[in-house]
Design a protein around this nucleic acid. Structure first.
Lengths: 245, 245
DNA sequence: GAGTGGTCTAGACCACTTG
DNA sequence: AAGTGGTCTAGACCACTCT
């Protein structure tokens, strides 16, 4: 099988990077030089370079040239879904409490409420195979007309709850991950001894313009949830023929 | 400021997605239709669509058309660096032990050693501001000529240790994140009581062809390390003029 | 002023999906 | 057979950098 020209050049340069023939900081030949060297059009060269840039191998400095990037090694892809653990077992939830309350100072701060507005509280227990695996508290600024149908709350993930009628594309989410141990009330709810290790995941949801629309903390039994993350270059495997030089 | 044509079309379509005028599953007009509608060349249309595809908004089905994607909501960007916590405080390490040992069954399994090969063990304590913050164990298949200079081991992150003379581009890394509590020996090393919450991070390093070249576990004091992850679309803010319709 | 990347055009051929 | 996206070409103009 013959690869398209732009992929051949893409792989050619990528391989030189892997082999160390091109090191971070090095400059690539110019677009015109590459086009001439490989007898292809400049447009095709640009296609190859664009792929390398997307994949993070190189960057372009207009007026100067293309350079090999220092690989970013501290950003990982993390998989996380409230309603599924890593093994894909789905989670069922039981509502403990749904309320509309006036926020305390802490909540007003976390939700960055501009004025004193009512806040929806949802407390749930998560089950997998009829065993309690997590406890969950969520807070959302109250908006008129927000549906609070029990069935929805039981099955919905946080974005689904907070983003009714909003495009899922337009929100931002952040996670904070901590290790804690169970104490008092949480121990009782989760039906465990005190000092049991818990994975605490704090979620925040924002609109595109950075308004906080949701804040939650979920406490997972450590034996139930283990988070996975990975890092690798060139996830898109264009592993094909190199271009002959 | 006038945006380039392809960015205008890019934003135009992106905004339609945000507003919900285009929903996941919907088909876009064909390249030729868009080119005619906006009086631009097909190449420029393709540039816009390519950007939307990169950003995850759409995908192309050759022979059919372009479609709006269901947003992937369970993949986050996680920042993690052994030698820096999230606040950027750097970490110093103290070597406890460096050894070359014959692997036990567990190690052979984790490192997927094809035969019985010697393994390098490195045990370290991490300090920040003269306080112990983590304990770390690393295992790497022994290779002749691997440098074990003490100074290097003290300062190096795992990839740097295991990938001497290899291109950092060509490796893969995976993390597993768990919550545990300190017990026995680890409590002593970290100078804490038993049952103290710890964030356990297990790292594995692979070559491009999936050979395991390193395995490690690091136990962080929960009060020292909190992991951060985030999710958002269109991180690259091309927020500029929309294209007039 | 020569060279670099950034943008855009018009036109061509292909392999594929659809009716 | 008509339409779709995928690939590639040759040529043009721009803003920028470097010397």
């Amino acid at each position: 099988m013959i690869a398209p020209t732009h992929l051949q050049l893409f792989n050619n340069i990528k391989n030189k990077i892997y082999k160390g023939l091109l090191k971070p900081g090095d400059m690539l030949p110019s677009e015109n030089e590459l086009a001439e060297e490989y007898n292809i059009s400049r447009v095709t060269v640009r296609k190859s370079l664009s792929l390398l840039e997307q994949a993070g191998y190189i960057y372009s400095a207009p007026g100067k040239g293309y350079f090999i990037r220092e690989p970013v090694t501290n950003k990982y892809i993390l998989s996380f879904n409230e309603m599924n653990n890593t093994n894909g077992q789905s989670i069922f939830s039981k509502l403990l409490e749904v309320n509309v309350i006036p926020p305390d100072a802490d909540l007003m701060n976390e939700l960055k409420l501009p004025e004193e507005r009512y806040v929806i509280v949802i407390k749930r227990l998560f089950f997998s195979d009829n065993t309690v695996v997590a406890y969950d508290e969520k807070y959302m600024p109250y908006e008129k007309g927000l549906p609070l149908v029990e069935r929805e709350i039981k099955c919905a993930t946080f974005p689904e709850l907070a983003c009714k009628n909003k495009s899922l594309f337009s929100i931002k989410k952040s996670l904070k991950i901590r290790s804690t141990t169970s104490q008092g009330n949480i121990s009782k709810l989760l039906n465990i001894e005190d000092n049991h290790p818990l994975l605490e995941i704090e979620q925040k949801l924002y609109t595109a313009d950075n308004k906080v629309i949701g804040w939650s903390k979920t406490y997972y039994l450590s034996e139930f949830l283990e988070l996975n993350a990975y890092w690798s270059f060139g996830q898109n495997s264009y592993e094909m023929n190199d271009m002959s030089e």
